[in-house]
Design a protein around this nucleic acid. Structure first.
Lengths: 232, 232
DNA sequence: CCTTGTCGTGAATGATGTGTTAAGGGAATC
DNA sequence: GATTCCCTTAACACATCATTCACGACAAGG
């Protein structure tokens, strides 16, 4: 991503604020989408995954808190930063906000300069883990290219289905580390979505079929781990 | 998972829900205590500190909110997770709930699967600081890597079965200290699960087979202890 | 010495978790 | 709207780990 073409979704029920912030952000070359209620915000967010969502807490119908919670339930938005906007004095909601999965908390009245600097910080913070790992190198024989969404094994390019790719990426992200089934479930399926307990096995099996049996090791009663080229 | 016998305190004034949830949780090997009112809940919580408290919001006399607040005033319960149970639609209480010090918020009707997955997520979140010592160093000749779930003896990597690994980890966690059989049982098997009295011996034996006889010492009539490289 | 209690040992049994296959539902794609 | 492909579930086989059991060794005390 070059510089500032980050996508920001702005959610507030007051048209004035909406317009004011939109103007401020666009002046900084951000790509801004707006919504004036939670439901629309979720739809828009899913339709075009933003990098950052600015969410007003006080809104009719679905408030910011709930909107945030629902967004966090969607795996697609797991890498998206969510920041709350709220009036000073609503301190209590701050705790709730973080608990609902927010990354930051910005109090009104909002000064454009502060907002911008805050946003830059937020985006920078999340930029590194996301981008740096565009290519995950496993052990020479295996590479994962997140950007192109393919796995390269001994020069051959494999294109894995989504779940398998995510599962492999998770395991490779920390070679040797054992990922318990619970962790795998909540990392890949999200903390509320529940699938049967044989599902992971099946994906593991498909992965082993494709990348070789010896790369993924079972630790019975615990979970799975990815094995690099370890001294046996 | 036997190491998973987390203690959960369940508080609700409706016997049906209480029983239903208790059943669901115990099926997952959690150690469940119940209370049907806030006052009892606090007493029980202090008597036997739980890892997680599930607290119904709507209760006669002392409601969930107040119970939570009072619990949070006790230092002993500062590490305990508190989650509210409430009917959907009581949105306002959600904010108040977090404000009272709750860690999560689960809406009725409760689906067991969702509840379990939520609980696991909550407990895991708090589990990390505990496991912070990813690598246990024993005495130079023995290392335990909890994350990778392996034991390294003189450079060789051994992968032990779960129970053996847990047992060794326990002993090594405090070299020289004698762990009585009772302590070992409740640490590894949980307070409720009961196994025969020869079981520990067998695991100890397997451990000695794998890591060497001299590292684990028997203290007859008392228990076992791990011996570092002590000058004999 | 004999008794008593504790631990070590090896083999047998039981329980649990995982591998595997196939089939159905659903979403995405054309 | 039809056809893929992917995700998930279910059922069963299988392996490994956990546990029990019976017995022998050993030490301490009577």
């Amino acid at each position: 991503m070059a510089g500032n073409s980050h996508k920001i979704l702005l959610v507030d029920d007051e048209p004035d604020i909406l317009e004011f912030l939109k103007y401020s952000l666009e002046k900084e070359k951000y790509s801004v989408t707006i919504a004036d209620n939670g439901a629309d915000a979720i739809k828009l967010a899913l339709a075009n995954i933003p990098d950052l969502i600015l969410l007003d807490v006080m809104m009719p119908d679905m408030d910011g808190m709930e909107t945030c919670t629902r967004m966090r339930e969607r795996k697609e938005l797991s890498n998206t930063i969510i920041a709350f906007l709220t009036a000073r004095g609503e301190d209590y909601s701050q705790i709730a906000g973080f608990s609902a999965g927010a990354d930051d908390y910005i109090t009104k009245p909002i000064k454009p300069k502060v907002l911008i600097s805050r946003i830059k910080a937020l985006l920078r913070r999340n930029a590194s883990p996301n981008d740096s790992a565009t290519v995950l190198q496993a052990n020479g024989s295996l590479k994962i290219d997140k950007e192109r969404y393919i796995v390269i094994k001994k020069g051959k390019e494999l294109s894995l289905p989504k779940k398998e790719f995510e599962l492999l990426t998770l395991l490779v992200s920390k070679p040797g580390k054992v990922f318990t089934r619970d962790v795998i479930l909540s990392e890949i399926w999200g903390h509320d979505i529940v699938v049967g307990n044989r599902t992971i096995d099946v994906h593991i099996r498909k992965l082993r079929e494709k990348i070789g049996d010896d790369l993924i090791q079972t630790v019975k009663g615990v979970g799975y781990k990815f094995i690099g080229a370890e001294a046996a």
